[in-house]
Design a protein around this nucleic acid. Structure first.
Lengths: 233, 233
DNA sequence: GATTATTTCTGGTCTAGTCCAGAATGCGGA
DNA sequence: TCCGCATTCTGGACTAGACCAGAAATAATC
């Protein structure tokens, strides 16, 4: 006898795999499932969070649970920008600039960028969406000295393109660190997740030339929205 | 006023960050926390699963919750084997062979390896541990024709080394796909996780020569045990 | 027809327990 | 000293509700 929460999970997973529930379609409400399975909300929610962990469904705050669309395939080592990437996979991308600031910035960013004690960093916070669903919340740190007047530019497009065009930056290599983490507060709110929901975290340092770091990012991806693809030679 | 579950999370996260709770140390039991915070087990467990999602703690079935040790840093594109990797980071590795079979194997493996309809695959299932804690459950599929007599060999060591030494295999490149997923059944049991716990899933195809696939793996990592490091040039 | 207020429905959070299976421990007997 | 058994303790799974805030739909108003 399977635990009830696993039975509910299996039933819903079945519906999704047979496409009886389509991409972005709403699932029955928690209370409807309680009735259907003669169970309780705790148990139903157990089942739903398991499906969420697997990436089969996602939640939208107080609106319900929805079937996850196909994951965006993303190769962090290719320098393809977000717009191009999304369009190559028939998705509609969008970027919202949440904030831009001149600040001291977190220690991790200052260390990565090896800036002088008195130099300020530019912090950009952006929210990126696919087909209207927020999937990525990112913090970008740049040394002010390398990017004068950056604050005045359009910061919702591709940063790579902007850096190349206006500042003549050629990224020679980068270092990515990837782990499973969790989102809280502003990040959780923006991604329509609850506090503590799992996510894929990518921390990146970009270099121009052998040692000169010019960009430090922290990306929080809705975990069901992305699959990394890492070829190696 | 913060929700109670977040307060409990913050308190425990604080203890861990200040090292008042050390690596692999047991947390107070759920019932003790209930008393301490005048709350209920549901709420306490909410807090604990958030810490688990973040990777700060892990559970050991019916034994309690423990502080996660540092993540193993893993570069899937480097062909450093598990033993070497662990030892470089002052950890004690171990491998247990769960099963070895000659089977048809799953469609994904057959497709990846492009085997003929009548050819069998060798399936190896292994559990790997660090310092006595299971961290990785892996399924390995190999075309029998390329690896005769493999079933008779010692399969608990480095497969890369074995393939190289006994079968003259030189891996030229590989393709890794990485996503956040969840573990169930045998995998969940072995990793001392509950059904549906999040994990990092890596699917890999290894090639010798341009097109000849010789190995297909699916790895399930305890998500708090690993950080991927992906340099790019 | 457009705007605003109200109601309904949703998930988010929580209370206060119960029963169960497996892990750890300590005790008794061989 | 060692083995086996019983007890205790742990988390896992569940029942049966409650109240709240925000989203969506609907009704009322201008």
């Amino acid at each position: 006898m399977l635990p009830a929460n696993i039975e509910i999970r299996d039933y819903l997973a079945g519906l999704i795999k047979q496409s009886r529930l389509k991409q972005n379609e709403r699932l029955p409400s928690e209370r409807e499932l309680v009735e259907q399975f003669k169970s309780t909300r705790i148990t139903v929610r157990d089942a739903l969070s398991k499906l969420e962990s697997e990436g089969l469904i996602y939640r939208s705050n107080r609106r319900g649970w929805f079937v996850s669309p196909a994951r965006l395939e993303y190769d962090p080592s290719s320098r393809v920008n977000f717009y191009l990437l999304a369009e190559q996979q028939q998705r509609t991308p969008a970027t919202e600039l949440i904030s831009k600031k001149r600040i001291k910035g977190p220690l991790a960013a200052r260390t990565a960028l090896a800036v002088a004690a008195d130099e300020k960093l530019i912090e950009l916070v952006r929210l990126r969406s696919l087909d209207g669903r927020p999937v990525l919340y990112e913090f970008i740190y740049l040394p002010e000295s390398r990017f004068p007047e950056l604050m005045k530019k359009n910061l919702e497009g591709s940063l790579t393109t902007l850096m190349q065009r206006d500042y003549n930056v050629e990224i020679t290599h980068e270092d990515n660190r990837i782990c499973v983490s969790a989102v809280y507060d502003q990040v959780a709110d923006a991604l329509a997740h609850i506090n503590g929901a799992p996510c894929l975290e990518i921390r990146r340092i970009r270099y121009e030339g052998e040692r000169k770091a010019v960009e430090f990012d922290i990306e929080y991806w809705v975990h069901s929205a992305i699959e990394l693809r890492i070829p190696s030679h």
